[in-house]
Amino acid sequence: MTTVLMADDGPGRVLGLITAGTARTRTAIAQVTGLARSTVGQRLDTLFDAQLIRESPESLPSRGRPSRVLELNPRAGVIISVDVGEDRTRMAILDLNMAIIGDRVEKLKLGDGPEVLLDRITALVRELIVQQGLEQTAVAGFGLGLPAPVDYEAGRVMGWSVMSGWENYDIRRHLRRSWPVPVLIDNDVNLLTLAEHRRFWPSARHLFFVKAGTGVGSGMVIDGAVNRGAQGAAGDIGHAHVAGFGDPQCRCGNVGCLESLVGGWALARDLGEGHDARDIAERLRRGDSAAVAALRNAGRIMGESVAYATSLLNPDVIVLGGLLGSTGDDLMAGIRQVVYQRSLPLATRRLQIVPTRFKSRAGIAGAGHLVRDHVLAPATLDARLTVGKTPFGDQ
């Protein structure tokens, strides 16, 4: 008879303690879990057999002989991470410690539709795997970020987006024809939010992330976890109406959306030159005074929406990212001014408003964390190991 392990006493929990750094020796694991040393030994044997852990060269002092430190084996499997943008797509192979083994950027057209684009991504990722000599390494999962509203549970684009022709297409089913592993799909801003929280603000219980690029989006961490709302639309300030600044036509079909006022494409429209955030960033780089003035004004307009979010969510930290959010202090200054002016002192007395520290690859990191969280979750891992499956591979 097969014994079914519970998530609170199985090898998955032990692995979680090791990867979090909570308990990295046999003695520490026994102390934290309350399990007998013989039981801890069994759990560790299971993890060693699955090649999920290894002994580190490091050792820690103890009452007797120094204790060997245990660590995750980062090459037990690899994660495919893909960040699809409006005009560029980045693909990467990550190890289980989120280190990039190899990556590439390609200009792919969203207008080619889901079948063509997803097949092209698959072909490019396979090339990357071969280039890195990883053909014999198990793929743990596939993470995909999209510049569109995503129903997270269904893994489908829902509603209006720049991804015309993708709505309700079964992306997960398509990818699993080539990748019979867990396929997790999310909105790109949610993945940026996840990456920011995990990398730089892990102790923040409440975080609000704003992406200012060609479009405008936002994501939120509530009680330490990304909150997607009921259908994955939570936190989207880009298409909320902002009163008092006119009602220009937005790409979504509505009027007066925040994005229609401060998105990169909207600033290019108002300046009469260029098409997107890259064009605006280039003008800023040249010191174009009209572009600088437009961005400062955009910061004050964006501050109205961010101030409302501050009162609603009361975050510990607000992080500004995206191409326009990373061009200097002009956008940030306007946001800070309005937030501190509009929000109650109780909401702002400990609030930090900061630029992202990511230089690039934040979307890749977010998609990687999404997959890693899923495949290394104690319940998921215990279920596979209990029935004798390898931790990764065909599902």
Rank of each mutant, 00 (worst) to 15 (best):
R251W: 04
E304Y: 12
S311M: 10
A281N: 07
V306G: 01
C252R: 09
W265V: 09
A298E: 00
A298W: 05
V242A: 04
D276Y: 01
N297M: 01
H241V: 07
A290I: 02
A298Q: 11
A309R: 13
I301E: 09
L320A: 06
V319N: 11
G263W: 08
G272M: 09
T310Y: 15
G246H: 07
A307I: 14
I301H: 07
S305L: 08
G256T: 00
I280H: 00
V262W: 13
E282T: 15
Q249I: 04
S305T: 11
Y308V: 12
C250F: 04
C250M: 10
R286F: 02
G272W: 13
D276V: 12
H275V: 00
G256M: 03
G256Y: 08
C257P: 08
L267I: 14
C250W: 05
R278G: 06
R286I: 02
V292F: 08
V319F: 01
L312D: 05
W265R: 15
A266P: 10
A277Q: 04
G299I: 00
E273C: 04
N314M: 03
S260N: 12
A277K: 01
R285I: 01
G299D: 11
A243M: 12
R278Q: 04
A290Y: 03
D270P: 02
G263Y: 03
V306A: 00
G303C: 07
E282W: 11
G272A: 03
L313T: 15
S260Y: 07
I318Y: 14
R285G: 14
L258S: 09
V242I: 14
C250Q: 08
H241P: 02
L271W: 13
R278V: 05
